[in-house]
């Protein structure tokens, strides 16, 4: 149990996917203007990341490794993620139109979210088990959502501020992200044993 707690704390705070591992920056910058869209994106990523990690883990350990096709890893993983996203879109549209309304616009963006592919590769590289991998994926996605939330809150305020012209938009957002990353560094060194 403690092992999973350690994975969760590490993935959310210590090694936050955005602030410490530099993954998923594009959607982080793109969809963090409003709190509502940040929530939608966060949920969509959590959903896809958990399922994608599960599927790619099974494929890696039961298909690619036994067949000696490890070199197909990148192609297979990205195709799985792209297909999953497409399928999710179709399924959500049919079953829960309400959820589709909320997440629909974010789904196509997830294929090129490097955090999803990144997590799928990280769990394979670190030799994690299936349960560990899924816990790690969900915790990472929560960390991503948390980062998105905090940042959206800051950016809503930022829009009302008078910023020098060349700094407007992305540059000032990046500097704020840097300050947040500094705050997150306070978590580093936390060990749970």
């Amino acid at each position: 149990m403690l092992e999973y707690l350690s994975i969760i704390i590490t993935a959310i705070f210590v090694n936050n996917i955005v602030f410490a591992q530099f993954l998923g920056i594009c959607p982080f910058m793109g969809v963090s203007r409003r709190l509502t869209s940040a929530t939608g994106m966060g949920m969509a990523v959590t959903f896809v990341m958990a399922i994608a990690t599960c599927v790619t883990w099974i494929l890696q350990n039961y298909v690619l490794v036994p067949a000696g096709l490890e070199f197909m890893q990148t192609i297979v993983f990205i195709l799985v993620i792209a297909t999953l996203v497409q399928m999710l879109e179709i399924i959500l549209k049919k079953i829960t139109p309400a959820l589709y309304q909320a997440l629909g616009v974010f789904l196509p963006l997830i294929t090129t979210n490097c955090a999803v592919l990144g997590v799928a590769i990280i769990v394979v590289r670190n030799g994690m088990g299936l349960t560990q991998s899924i816990v790690y994926a969900v915790a990472t996605a929560i960390g991503f959502t948390l980062a998105l939330w905090i940042f959206a809150g800051i950016r809503e305020q930022l829009e009302l501020t008078d910023v020098p012209r060349p700094m407007r938009g992305v540059p000032i957002a990046l500097i704020c992200a840097g300050l947040l990353a500094m705050a997150f560094m306070g978590f580093s060194g936390i060990l749970i044993k």
């Binding site: 530099f22 012209r165 060349p166 000032i172 500097i175 992200a177 500094m182 560094m185």
Partner: peptide, 24 residues
């Protein structure tokens, strides 16, 4: 701090601002 994560964000932000300024 510039080698660590926060410095990456801040340095890139300042560089984009500089690029914007030159283009303006």
């Amino acid at each position: 701090v510039f080698i660590l994560a926060p410095g990456a964000f801040i340095a890139l932000g300042l560089m984009i601002a500089l690029f914007n300024r030159i283009r303006q």
